[in-house]
Design a binder for these strands. Structure first.
Lengths: 134, 134
DNA sequence: TTTAGTCCCTGTAGTGACTACAGGGTCAAG
DNA sequence: CTTGACCCTGTAGTCACTACAGGGACTAAA
């Protein structure tokens, strides 16, 4: 059994902002941990594992709602690869859409920046492009 | 001179949500237009051009703050290609960073989805991966 | 002329996912 | 015994909108 750690220690170990932990507790993503006599939160390795799960999921771009339902499956011990796959596939699609949106942005931006003189002159192709009617 | 149009008409022409126009006015990105006797906003082609500028800039991922400073340069007739280029370049860098973050996400996700059985079984590589310690 | 429907106005609250702050209590080191 | 770092709480602020409630105005049909 791991010795109980405080919120600040959990934050440091996980790389999570300390307030975010309290926020995840408030929205039900993290369980309410036991408290010390003085009311300090006491976390153990299960809390840490769960928090890391959430942080990794967020890094992969899953929403809080996605993670809530994934953790709900886990909590109910009803993980079925089928359900998870469906969620992950639809998330993958949205990530791919974001990438192509950003690539379109990137090519417009870099074309415009290339055409910039960089001089201290009052003609700017970026401004002109944004102001172009139609 | 273009006949004045209402907020709803401007919204329809520009493809912008009607409430967003009011929001842009509140934060000073759009000027307060003249009003009709009954208090209806009356927009003209300059408003439309400015709104399209903002909408295109947002599509390219510029923040409201970016657009505020760009439009400020325009309003002060002090557009210098140098300043604009600097902003655009730094924005381009952040877009490129976002793209590479998302690509990392994408490859992890698609690798995981590929390894999914898609079956109704309780072993799921995505869950396992998210729960892996370290 | 009435009525129904669509527009416009205002202020305010809600969204997502945090992050920061104020005002207090606790604890360990020197 | 004091200083500073930690912890607690509730609340407000962030960004860029979006939605809603409650009211007035205008248009077209019955």
């Amino acid at each position: 059994m791991m010795k109980a750690i405080t919120r600040g220690q959990l934050a440091k170990r996980s790389g999570c902002n300390i307030e975010t932990i309290r926020y995840y507790e408030k929205i039900g993503l993290m369980p309410e941990p036991p408290r010390s006599v003085r009311g300090y939160r006491q976390y153990d390795e299960n809390h840490e594992r769960r928090l890391l799960f959430v942080l990794r999921g967020r890094e992969l771009g899953f929403t809080i709602a996605d993670l809530t339902s994934l953790l709900d499956l886990v909590d109910r011990r009803a993980v079925s690869c089928g359900e998870v796959e469906k969620l992950a596939r639809s998330h993958l699609r949205s990530v791919q859409e974001k990438i192509s949106d950003l690539k379109r942005m990137e090519s417009t931006l870099s074309a415009t920046v290339r055409s910039c003189s960089g001089q201290d002159v009052p003609e700017c192709p970026l401004i002109d492009r944004l102001f172009d009617i139609k």
